[in-house]
Nucleic acid binder design. Structure first.
Length: 943
DNA sequence: TGTTGATGCAA
DNA sequence: TATTGCATCAACA
């Protein structure tokens, strides 16, 4: 009994490698075929072999054939997402390579990899000191044992979680023997094992804990506490037992395998090392040769396995020497890698004298990272608890401030006193500041009378530019992705649930560890990311758009907008009365009381009690949404009341009830928060509250805009771009007809109507124009005949004709759409006029719906994104002019194609001219750009 | 207590 | 089976 056996589910590892390296666009140097999964597979494998001290190994693969479990259940593993198209050949190649390198592999017709794994474990349990299974399949928990554990992939490339029987007991609360029963109740969506519908992880675990197995549950079914659970269990008894069977791993396969068959082959054998070179995987070859101590011929040629995008020769080298464990899974960030320095020196500064001394020793020529600790996520409400900084990797300081409610307060200086000492550093514009979401710290400090200057690098924005499709750009994830480093999370610091503490109640020494790490990691992220921002494609966007607009947004958020609180409160009452009235009617027509807000109950009322025809389905039942209700209008009087109550409930709950609560007590204004790193196209988004979706379309909705008012003596100005996206499409497509329309100042919707209805422009009726307007919008979103028919409420055929006529009238647009999709297929991304990229790996999907979706995104993103770039530029310039020319007017809001200002009437004309001009000239296109504006006492009047 | 789905608001 | 978002409520685990 010696040695360590590693059993690998080959498909699982290949899948993992594929997704981890999907966006790297690696290709093989000889064949030019995609090789991300292959590259990742070997990198991950070699790392595992080293980390786990493996002596023996076995690869298992699912067969391509029908499975024995299909005899039990035809749908087993059906509905599985098909494998990505470019993965299939790579798995084939991996299989070949494993064979060539003489790794032991097992694939058996009709038998799943899991069953081979189970049987191997059973057979060899006594022959090895330890058996490690690499898989993520929960079913396999049942084969774990004292010396058998599993590694399940976590986030990142080389992070694994160790699962053993103790883990199963601790995290699910069941024994490994109970796993099949547990899975029988739970089911498994990925294998299409049904389980019992309505029972989830918690429910299944509870039942098994209490009763032990399925038999006992059904024997003592009346003992089950939850009545609705009993119904579910009885209704799906058959499924439960079938699912248990499907989830039971076979461990008694007759395998003709000896321990010696599983010996790890010597992959350092020069012939095997050479194999990678011969196959065109030069980077893998180099890595392996280096480890094996084999000298490499210095051909310096390493074109393969670098992204297909253009790169400088210097970066190629970096790619070659990097460590796979540091490789980011974030998109095209192929060579971002810096190991976190080994020694750490984090220090909490105890006294003001000490603070002075440390500050005086800092080097103002070096970038310094700054991070604040506060009491709130909202920078306009946050109170400062401390500040950390770092100008050298691994070395960071934290200064804790007193807080009125903290028991540690008497030991600490006040924020005001400490900030006096920090102020010269923080406000020195030549001293470069680095931050993670530094707009937040900027605002917090501003509320303490400190104007943070010299801001030059935000790591969150850098990460966003590298991969705008990724929504997570928080420091903890970035540390793992870019530095291969696991940080202390905020939750770990303050606790969770009932144990959660206020930050000011936690020992400052502990907070210091956390805060110093934040500053340290932020600086290191900057070191890793800043070379990337120097590249042509990112430089302009980062330094000329995203970083500057950060300042503009901070000022907008700080400024806020005035609202009429009393007015909103009275609107709430008006709406409440209406809601009560309609609710009474609805209950009357239904013949009973029920929760009108509950779609589930409403379904019963409409489609069962009242027997109205149900049409649209949702995942959970029949839809009751607006379009359904609209089509039922006239069939029953309840419908009108439902439509009305929906409208008023929405207005009340989302807007009139909520907005007054978000008024800042100190400023008496609402301060939204703009997020710069959410929208994949480059747009901004707005939260707390979202001021980018305030109603405007109908009369009642517009009432809300009357509540957003100018402060005393000022006026609201709203300036918005006219048909900006259509104009950008005209520019991109170069279509002569569309360009002519804009150059000559024609009515574009009228012109489109003339085209699709085959009449002259003066014969176009308002109705035709409206339809044409919808068609124009649809095209920007990547129109389909189905979508258009829905929107115009016409037949598919008619919609199709419209589209054909549209493309005949604007041939350039048709060509553009084809070209952009082709470009995306070739390059794997699309980009805006300024080069903002969006990667779309789905464009290659063999799944039609997925690839068609990606095509629409490919069509829309450059247009939506260019518009976003343009208005950001305009905002930056207007903001600069406001400061430089000392306007008293302020920019308050951005709503994608609209800017809202609070204007001093004394400078009304001058300001209007300036803002309009900046918007129209922000970017030069082949067609004129037009912005139009209006003044008013409130936001509604300014439209 | 936190997560998911349905719904509806904007550009 | 139209693009990009965010907030609310109910239902569920």
């Amino acid at each position: 009994m010696s040695g360590r056996l590693l059993i690998i589910d080959g498909h699982a590892l290949a899948f993992r490698a594929y997704f981890a390296f999907a966006a790297t666009n690696l290709t093989n140097s000889k064949t030019g075929l995609p090789s991300g999964a292959i590259f990742g597979f070997w990198r991950m494998l070699f790392k595992l072999l080293q980390d786990e001290h493996v002596t023996h190994i076995a690869f298992t693969f699912d067969p391509g054939t029908r499975l024995e479990r299909n005899d039990l259940y035809e749908d087993y593993k059906a509905h599985r997402k098909p494998m990505p198209e470019d993965l299939k050949p790579q798995i084939q190649k991996i299989y070949e390579m494993l064979q060539a390198l003489e790794f032991p592999m097992y694939k058996i017709n009709g038998i799943e990899a899991d069953d081979i794994i189970g049987s191997l474990c059973k057979k060899f349990a006594k022959d090895f000191e330890e058996i490690v299974i690499l898989s993520s399949d929960k079913d396999l928990y049942q084969v774990l044992d004292k010396n058998i554990h599993m590694l399940r992939g976590k986030r990142g490339v080389s992070e694994f979680e160790k699962i053993d029987p103790k883990w199963v007991k601790a995290n699910i609360g069941i024994t490994k023997e109970q796993v099949p029963d547990y899975m029988g109740l739970l089911g498994d969506a990925s294998d299409n094992i049904p389980g019992v519908k309505g029972i989830g992880e918690k429910g299944a675990a509870k039942l098994i804990q209490e009763f032990g197995d399925l038999e006992t549950i059904y024997k003592k079914i009346d003992k089950v506490k939850n009545k609705s659970l009993i119904d579910k269990l009885i209704a799906e008894k058959e499924n439960a037992f079938l699912s248990r069977k499907l989830a039971t791993i076979v461990t008694n396969l007759k395998l003709d395998i000896k321990k010696s068959d599983l010996k790890l082959p010597n992959y350092y054998d020069p012939k095997k090392v050479q194999y990678f070179k011969d196959e065109g995987y030069n980077v893998l070859h180099r890595d392996l040769a280096k480890q094996a101590g084999i000298p490499i011929a210095s051909d310096g040629d390493s074109k393969e396995e670098t992204p297909s995008a253009k790169k400088s020769s210097k970066e190629k080298k970096e790619t070659v020497t990097e460590d796979s464990s540091n490789r980011s899974k974030k998109g095209n960030t192929d060579s971002v890698t810096t190991a976190v320095v080994a020694k750490q020196s984090y220090k909490r500064i105890q006294t003001l004298d000490e603070l002075k001394k440390i500050i005086s020793k800092l080097d103002s020529k070096k970038p310094i990272s700054v991070d604040t600790e506060t009491t709130s996520q909202d920078p306009m409400l946050a109170e400062l608890l401390g500040l950390s900084f770092s100008e050298e990797p691994g070395v960071a300081y934290y200064m804790a401030f007193s807080h009125s409610e903290s028991i540690y307060s008497h030991l600490l200086p006040s924020a005001e006193e400490a900030l006096k000492i920090l102020k010269p550093m923080l406000e020195d514009p030549k001293w470069k500041k680095v931050g993670q979401n530094i707009k937040y710290d900027l605002l917090v400090l501003r509320n303490y009378g400190i104007e943070l200057k010299g801001i030059y690098f935000d790591t969150m924005l850098a990460s966003y530019l590298l991969n705008p499709g990724e929504r997570r750009h928080n420091m903890d994830d970035m540390a793992v992705d870019y530095l291969n480093y696991k940080t202390i999370t905020y939750e770990e610091l303050v606790g969770t649930g009932k144990k959660k503490q206020n930050l000011y109640d936690i020992d400052p020494d502990k907070v210091s560890e956390y805060a110093c790490e934040d500053a340290d990691i932020t600086l290191q992220l900057h070191n890793a990311l800043s070379p990337k921002m120097e590249e042509g494609i990112h430089k302009k966007l980062f330094y000329e758009i995203e970083m500057p607009v950060l300042h503009t947004l901070a000022d907008m958020e700080f400024e806020g907008i005035a609202v009429d609180k009393k007015y909103f409160e009275s609107l709430s009452e008006t709406f409440e009365t209406k809601i009560k009235e309609h609710e009474k009617n609805i209950h009357f027509y239904a013949g009973r009381q029920f929760n009108v807000n509950s779609t589930k109950e409403l379904q019963t009322v409409l489609f069962e009690d009242l027997r109205l025809p149900a049409e649209k389905k949702t995942q959970t039942g029949y839809s009751t949404d607006h379009s359904v209700l609209e089509s039922l209008q006239g069939t029953h009087p309840i419908i009108d009341d439902l439509l009305a109550i929906r409208k008023f409930s929405k207005l009340k709950s989302t807007y009139t009830d909520t907005l007054p609560t978000l008024v800042n007590p100190k400023t008496n204004r609402i301060h939204t928060s703009y997020n710069q790193t959410i929208a994949a196209t480059g747009r901004l988004s707005s939260t707390n509250p979202n001021l980018q979706n305030i109603p405007i379309k109908d009369e009642e909705g517009r009432l809300l805009r009357k509540g957003f008012i100018a402060k005393k003596g000022f006026e609201i100005l709203s300036l918005d771009y006219s048909q900006i996206e259509l104009r950008i499409m005209a520019h991109f497509s170069n279509d002569p007809n569309m360009i002519d329309a804009y150059k000559s100042g024609a009515d574009i919707h009228k012109r489109t109507a003339a085209g699709i209805f085959g009449v002259s422009e003066d014969q176009v009726t308002p109705d035709m124009r409206n339809k044409a307007k919808i068609v124009n919008f649809s095209v920007i979103y990547g129109v389909t005949s189905f979508g258009l028919s829905n929107n115009l409420k016409i037949g598919r055929k008619e919609a199709k004709e419209f589209i054909e006529k549209y493309f005949a009238a604007y041939k350039g647009v048709a060509t553009y759409m084809e070209e952009i999709v082709e470009f995306c297929k070739q390059n794997g991304y699309v980009e805006t006029l300024l080069g903002r990229r969006r990667y779309l790996p789905d464009i290659h999907s063999s799944h039609k719906m997925v690839s068609e979706g990606a095509k629409r995104v490919a069509i829309n993103s450059p247009i939506q994104g260019t518009s976003a770039d343009m208005i950001k530029l305009a905002m930056i310039r207007i903001h600069e002019k406001i400061k430089k020319e000392s306007f008293r007017s302020k920019l308050l809001l951005q709503v994608h194609d609209e800017l809202v200002f609070e204007v001093d009437p004394k400078e009304k004309n001058e300001f209007y001219q300036m803002a309009k001009e900046e918007m129209e000239s922000a970017m030069k296109l082949k067609v004129p750009i037009v912005a139009q504006g209006k003044f008013g006492g409130n936001w509604d009047e300014a439209h």
